[in-house]
Design a protein around this nucleic acid. Sequence first.
DNA 1: TGTTAAATAGTAATTATTCTTAAATAGGAA
DNA 2: TTCCTATTTAAGAATAATTACTATTTAACA
Lengths: 167, 167
Amino acid sequence: MDISFNDIKQKFQGCGLKTTPQRTAIYDALLRSTAHPTAEDLFDQVAPQFPMMSLNTVYYTLGVLRTSGLIHEVNIGHTRARFDANLSPHHHLICVECQAIVDVMDPRLNRLTSPAGIPKDFEITSYQVAFRGFCGSCRRHAGRSINHSSSGLHPTTVKGGLHGKSS
Amino acid sequence: MDISFNDIKQKFQGCGLKTTPQRTAIYDALLRSTAHPTAEDLFDQVAPQFPMMSLNTVYYTLGVLRTSGLIHEVNIGHTRARFDANLSPHHHLICVECQAIVDVMDPRLNRLTSPAGIPKDFEITSYQVAFRGFCGSCRRHAGRSINHSSSGLHPTTVKGGLHGKSS
DNA sequence: TGTTAAATAGTAATTATTCTTAAATAGGAA
DNA sequence: TTCCTATTTAAGAATAATTACTATTTAACA
């Protein structure tokens, strides 16, 4: 996920965006991260290089990048927006304790077929699976043992498909 | 999805909750709805019966019901929380234009298996698929024709499983 | 190099939600 | 049935995240 300044400049130009130092730094920070940072996370990360920068600029920049399709907004809970520069189709694993978001790149999840029983005139343009649970450190901290049956998930990966046995 | 006052009373008692008129009305309104209303939606719906009620009570009540496991909070975007009294496992279809949320009950979606490539110590407790797109009325209003290929979804439902052909 | 539309930074405003507190009340005990 | 108490309600204040407004600055193009 390494990218040069010129790559970023080209992407910005391709979207008709000016290449400013702040914008470049924010987008670069997001490209380097897999943690799905908040606007404030990015501000904290970039602010040392730009002592005059305002949090507002981060929000504005993220809005522009999102509108241009260079980044995605990921929402887990309604408290704050999280951002992601990984545009390849993927899904998320969310720790309900510490709110960590981990990318799930299993390509089989990208082959779901249209669900049954939905309005015929609804046009689906994308979908995402959000897996929720407890990350390792939160689980250990709480003294939880793993109990896969509670998820409704099959404990092991089934070769060749995402479905379990028909019930 | 019809439920009597005594059913509600029993559910509240089972969770150690007092059966107050406001709480009953809020939960009843949520049970009758499939629109995944916001706290304010519910307030508007219930307020005529309780002119003195405050929005605060709705928030408090929804918090109590959620903690008791009687309702779920559904988040689409970070702007506001939406609520759902439908506890049976299901998924959602979200209109990115008008923010409508439609339940997707296709049982095949409840049989996904553990995704590959995730940390071994992460315990998944649940998952949900969020399908995004344009509902009929928003699509017609914007003059969009249906283009299923943009979703990565197979246009037709494949009998017997959720996966498409292996590529 | 000059021009201009876009971007930045600072401040204020807005929105959704939570906190605090006092009064009211449901539900169990006497 | 009446009393007691913890819970619930309502009202207003407070908070957190985000957006709006505006003057200044700057990147990109001519």
